[in-house]
Computed example of a mutant assay.
Amino acid sequence: MQTVHRLRALAVELNLLGTEFAHMHGLHTTDLRALICILDTERAGLDATPGLLGSQLAINSASVTALLDRMEKAGLIRRTRDPDDRRRSLLAVTPRAVEIGQTFFGPLIASTIEVLDGFDAAERDSISRFLDGVNHAVAVERRGSGQ
Rank of each mutant, 00 (worst) to 15 (best):
S55I: 03
S89L: 11
A62R: 03
D47G: 06
S61H: 15
K73I: 01
A58K: 04
T65N: 09
I113T: 07
T94H: 09
Q56E: 15
A110P: 00
G106Q: 06
I38P: 07
I109V: 10
L52M: 09
L52I: 01
I36N: 02
G54L: 11
L68E: 01
E114Y: 07
C37A: 15
D69R: 11
R86H: 01
A62N: 07
A66L: 07
I109L: 10
L76V: 11
T94Y: 06
E114L: 08
L116E: 12
L91P: 14
M71K: 02
R79H: 09
I77R: 00
A34K: 02
T80P: 09
G118M: 13
P50G: 15
G51D: 15
S55D: 11
E42D: 02
I38R: 01
L68F: 02
L90N: 11
P95K: 04
G118A: 05
P95W: 07
E42C: 02
E99I: 07
P83H: 00
S63Y: 01
A34I: 03
L32H: 07
V98I: 13
R86I: 04
F119I: 05
L67N: 06
T112K: 08
D84F: 04
A74L: 15
A74E: 15
T112C: 15
F119A: 05
P95M: 11
A44M: 07
Q102V: 10
T80H: 04
L76C: 09
T29Q: 00
I36K: 00
E114G: 02
S111W: 09
V64H: 13
E99D: 09
A121H: 08
A62P: 09
T94M: 12
T65A: 11
L91A: 02
S111F: 10
I59L: 11
D31K: 00
I38M: 03
D40F: 02
A110H: 04
L108F: 13
G54A: 14
Q102M: 14
T94V: 04
I38L: 12
D120F: 08
F119M: 09
E99R: 12
G45R: 12
T30F: 01
R81V: 15
G54K: 06
E99W: 03
L90H: 14
A48E: 03
F119S: 00
E99L: 14
E72L: 06
C37E: 03
V64M: 13
A48I: 12
I59E: 13
E42Y: 05
T103I: 10
A66D: 06
A44P: 12
I38Q: 00
S111M: 09
C37N: 11
P95G: 08
D85K: 13
R96D: 14
L53M: 10
A74R: 05
N60V: 09
T29W: 00
L68A: 07
L67R: 15
R33A: 02
S63D: 00
G101T: 04
A110N: 00
R96C: 05
